[in-house]
């Protein structure tokens, strides 16, 4: 489904975010990407929908090259890739439903977007997305009035409304408390299993990664240092990824054991 071929990203100023990444993600997998902040996790995810352009190599999504795409093609590609953000990135001053309808924008003529009058079929898709994350009762509430966990579920619904083939989640639980983090992670797991959407999640908590990841990718300084099953990801592997021993900050449950 997603294929990185020698993908390299160097930011202006000389920071090497990704170095020669080659990686294949089969359809339907739930992959967790772990690593320190600055290891290139966010860049890796954003390279898939072209929010960060590659400086070298290429990324193929469903056979389409991200860097080779025209603006129009890139937007078509993005429409098939849902994204979830650390800070939810909701438009807070408008309703939950309007936020979710953003996921239908790509399929909606400009005048409907301008007037905010979406087709009833699109509204139905948005409602169903909200139902899937069990927050449909808040559809007409202002996004700013929701708790962090609720906002993140709206973020997931927005991505689902795109009816995507791929779901990208950039540190989806970093702004949430531990119980809410599990709720959100289980939502993602359920969506991955029920809908078969290929899912990539960035996490920095290792215990969450092991619990939910079918496959774990360890990134360090822009390179893949681990690629395997959760159970193989032990203390030794951890030191490779983090370059130091495990501390309380690296796990969600505040106990430095795996």
């Amino acid at each position: 489904m997603i294929s990185f071929q020698h993908a390299t990203v160097t930011y202006p100023g000389g920071v090497h975010a990704l170095r020669d990444i080659t990686l294949d993600v089969p359809a339907g997998q739930l992959i967790v990407v772990v690593g320190l902040s600055g290891a290139g996790k966010s860049t890796l995810i954003r390279a898939i929908n072209g929010l960060v352009p590659l400086t070298d190599g290429q990324v193929l999504v469903d056979g389409v090259s991200v860097s080779g795409a025209s603006r129009r093609e890139l937007r078509d590609l993005r429409a098939g890739v849902g994204m979830i953000f650390q800070n939810f990135n909701l438009t807070k001053r408008t309703s939950v439903l309007n936020n979710v309808l953003m996921g239908r924008m790509h399929y909606t003529p400009w005048w409907r977007v301008m007037t905010g009058v979406y087709r009833s079929a699109d509204r139905e898709i948005a409602m169903q997305a909200l139902e899937r994350v069990e927050i449909v009762d808040k559809a007409y509430v202002r996004a700013s009035n929701l708790s962090g966990g609720q906002q993140q579920r709206v973020g997931i619904a927005r991505a689902l409304a795109q009816q995507p083939k791929v779901l990208l989640a950039d540190e989806p639980v970093a702004s949430l408390d531990p119980p809410t983090s599990h709720v959100v992670m289980r939502d993602l797991q359920r969506i991955n299993r029920d809908l078969g959407i290929t899912t990539l999640v960035n996490l920095h908590f290792l215990d969450l990664a092991r619990r939910y990841g079918e496959r774990i990718i360890g990134l360090r300084a822009g390179r893949i240092v681990f690629d395997g099953k959760g159970e193989d990801c032990d203390e030794r592997v951890f030191r490779d990824i983090y370059g130091r021993s495990l501390t309380a900050d690296d796990v969600l449950e505040a106990r430095p054991q795996l």
Binding site: R78, G82, M102, M105, W110
Partner: peptide, 30 residues
């Protein structure tokens, strides 16, 4: 304005106009 929603709108495949309308306009309307 908060740039987060703009990134989200771009990530859904929305055009620049659509992003301005849905992610920026509600923020600055008041």
């Amino acid at each position: 304005v908060d740039l987060g929603p703009i990134e989200a709108a771009r990530a859904t495949g929305g055009s620049r106009f659509a992003a301005v309308r849905t992610a920026v306009f509600p923020q600055v309307l008041p």
